[in-house]
Simulated scan of single mutants.
Amino acid sequence: MTVTTTGVKRAFKCRFYPTDAQAAELSRTFGCVRKVYNLALAARSEAFTRQERVNYNQTSAMLTAWKKTEELAFLCEVSSVPLQQALRHLQTAYSSFFAKRAKYPRFKSKKKSRKSAEYTSSAFRFRDGKLTLAKMTEPLGIVWSRPLPEGTVPSTVTVSQDAAGRWFVSMLCDDMPVEPLPVLDTAVGIDAGITSLLTLSTGEKITNPKCERVDRRRLAKAHKNLARKARGDGANRRKARIKVAKVYARIADRRRDHLHKITTRLVRENQTIVIEDLTVRNMVKNHSLARAISDAAWREMRTMLEYKAQWYGRELITVDRWFPSSKLCSACGTIASKMPLHVREWTCDCGTTHDRDVNAAKNILAVGLTASVCGAGVRPQRSSPGGQSATKQKHPRREP
Rank of each mutant, 00 (worst) to 15 (best):
A86Y: 00
N363A: 06
M301P: 06
K135H: 12
E118N: 14
T4R: 11
L39Y: 10
P154R: 04
P154S: 01
R291E: 07
Q84I: 00
D162C: 08
D320W: 05
Q271M: 03
T59N: 12
S96P: 11
G193V: 00
P340I: 01
R50P: 03
F126M: 07
R53D: 09
R302H: 05
F97Q: 07
M62R: 08
I251R: 03
R34L: 02
E25N: 13
A40T: 07
W298I: 04
L184I: 08
G387Q: 01
K362F: 05
K362C: 02
S372C: 11
D191R: 08
G203I: 08
T303L: 03
E315G: 04
L148M: 11
V143N: 04
D174T: 08
A240S: 13
R216H: 12
R254H: 15
R101H: 12
G31F: 06
P147Q: 14
F168S: 11
R166N: 12
R382W: 12
G351P: 05
R241Q: 08
K130L: 13
E25R: 10
T152E: 05
T137P: 11
F30K: 03
K135R: 15
S60F: 12
A11L: 07
H260D: 15
Y312I: 03
C332M: 05
K327I: 03
A390K: 05
G375L: 02
V358I: 13
G203A: 09
I206Q: 09
W298D: 05
D349Q: 13
L75K: 02
C332W: 01
E25P: 04
N286I: 12
